[in-house]
Design a protein around this nucleic acid. Structure first.
Lengths: 136, 136
DNA sequence: CTCTTGACTTAGACAATGTCCAGTGTAGGA
DNA sequence: TCCTACACTGGACATTGTCTAAGTCAAGAG
């Protein structure tokens, strides 16, 4: 039983074959998959699973904070199951691979009050960009 | 004559009515428009302008570094003509408004070498999220 | 000024990603 | 075991972006 699935059960989710498969795909390796990649891997285990269900399930997981949605470019969103450890992302500009990284310090502290323009600022996301070893 | 258009001319671009209109729309007020919003405003001035031309022109401006592409969510990219002053973005989680902000320090410096995993890191984008004064 | 040429634009088909809905199925409590 | 609210399916639809073939035009040459 994956940790993620266990937490979903505690939140009162019905545990269906589809949700179990999506949770297992996400929890399996901490890669950052697109919704379509999740669907492809889920289909390998449960051939009838529909695209809508994968999208719904991912959306619900994001809503309750078990999964983070990462928009690294203007294309497909990626889903990050590592929601319980604060981290930022390092993205390859060529192939789109995403790695979790932990920079030093708190990025929120770098934004002085007079640069907040009345906003209630609650989070800072940092995306580092570059080329991965395979794409150099 | 807008500054942006002037710089395009210096780069040897043919100045067509379409490019002039796109440049004027972007340069007009430093709001961050989506491609479709640019197209809508361009159409108001030049009704025949096609979607493809707006996309092409925006893409070219991004390529030559006159405009920055901002992916704040998984939806439409936004275009920021303020490319010659380094800055980050503050996004309202509810209405999507984007403001330019200048945090202190260099965000790249916060990523130590042992957290770069062999990547050649070239840039850091910071997105601050919160609620704007109108949405609180 | 007119001509010429190759860069530019257009319309629309197509692709990728995401959303919605009506009908059907089923998990889990009674 | 049975019920029912919740979940799933398949497919239509929406949004955003890309591509191509054919027509158009900006700007330098003469």
């Amino acid at each position: 039983m994956s940790d993620l699935l266990e937490r979903l059960r505690e939140r009162g989710w019905r545990i269906t074959a589809q949700r179990r498969v999506v949770a297992e795909v996400l929890d399996g390796d901490h890669v950052h998959l697109t919704a379509d990649e999740v669907h492809a891997r889920a289909t390998a285990r449960l051939p009838e699973i529909s695209r809508a269900t994968v999208y719904n399930t991912l959306g619900e997981m994001v809503t309750i904070g078990e999964v983070i949605e990462v928009a690294t470019d203007g294309r497909a969103k990626r889903y990050d199951p590592n929601a319980h450890h604060p981290h930022q992302h390092l993205v390859c500009s060529r192939c789109g691979t995403v790695r979790d990284v932990r920079p030093t310090g708190d990025p929120l502290a770098a934004l002085p009050a007079d640069e907040r323009f009345g906003f209630t600022v609650s989070a800072a996301e940092v995306t580092y960009r570059g080329l991965c070893p395979d794409c150099v």
